[in-house]
């Protein structure tokens, strides 16, 4: 078995998925792949079942928003960990604001359940096939996705602040 370097793993994934892997980089030595949203689930599934890389653990699922990149406003980020090889891989998928839908990975990792709900709660990213995609941290009555940049961070009901002192 050859050594599992980032370059080697990236090459291996490229051979498998070809052009659907849009880019690979190594910020802070962590292999980061930008993949087409339609194959994100496939890549994670493959990494999990690959006899060599052996990803067993989904560390994190989170979202990000880049309103200035047209057609790629939303990003879903998966952090994966191989406990046997002590390798971490980051997978990113960009989604358009008009249709922020991506396949759930709850069928691969049960732990994705709450993490995807959280991402939905804050960014409104829809995880297709999720068993219970409802809000998890914010109150159920909330009618917007608070971490989207078009919404103000501050609460509109605040009464004791003089706006001019707080730059509002």
């Amino acid at each position: 078995m050859s050594e599992l370097t980032n370059v080697y793993i990236a090459e291996k994934i490229r051979n498998q998925f070809g052009d659907a892997i849009l880019s690979a980089s190594e910020p802070y030595d962590m292999l980061t792949l930008v993949v087409n949203p339609s194959i994100a689930h496939g890549v994670i599934n493959w990494l999990k079942n690959d006899a060599e890389i052996k990803i067993q653990f989904l560390t994190d699922v989170c979202g990000a928003q880049f309103p200035e990149i047209e057609g790629q406003e939303f990003c879903v980020i998966y952090h994966l960990h191989s406990l046997t090889n002590n390798i971490r891989i980051r997978i990113k998928s960009f989604l358009p604001a008009s249709n922020p839908i991506i396949a759930t990975v709850t069928d691969l990792f049960e732990s994705a359940n709450w993490q995807e709900r959280e991402t939905y709660d804050f960014y409104g990213i829809i995880f297709e096939g999720h068993p219970n995609l409802t809000r998890i941290l914010n109150m159920d009555e909330m009618d917007y996705f608070p971490l989207r940049k078009e919404f103000p961070l501050e609460d509109g009901t605040r009464t004791d602040k003089e706006d001019k002192y707080f730059g509002r």
């Binding site: 909330m142 608070p146 961070l153 501050e154 609460d155 009901t157 605040r158 009464t159 004791d160 602040k161």
Partner: peptide, 17 residues
């Protein structure tokens, strides 16, 4: 009393609400 430093979407801005 007022929400304090948490002038944010998730915090009640004073329990007197």
């Amino acid at each position: 009393s007022t929400g304090g430093i948490f002038d944010t979407y998730s915090v009640l801005q004073g329990i007197d609400k």
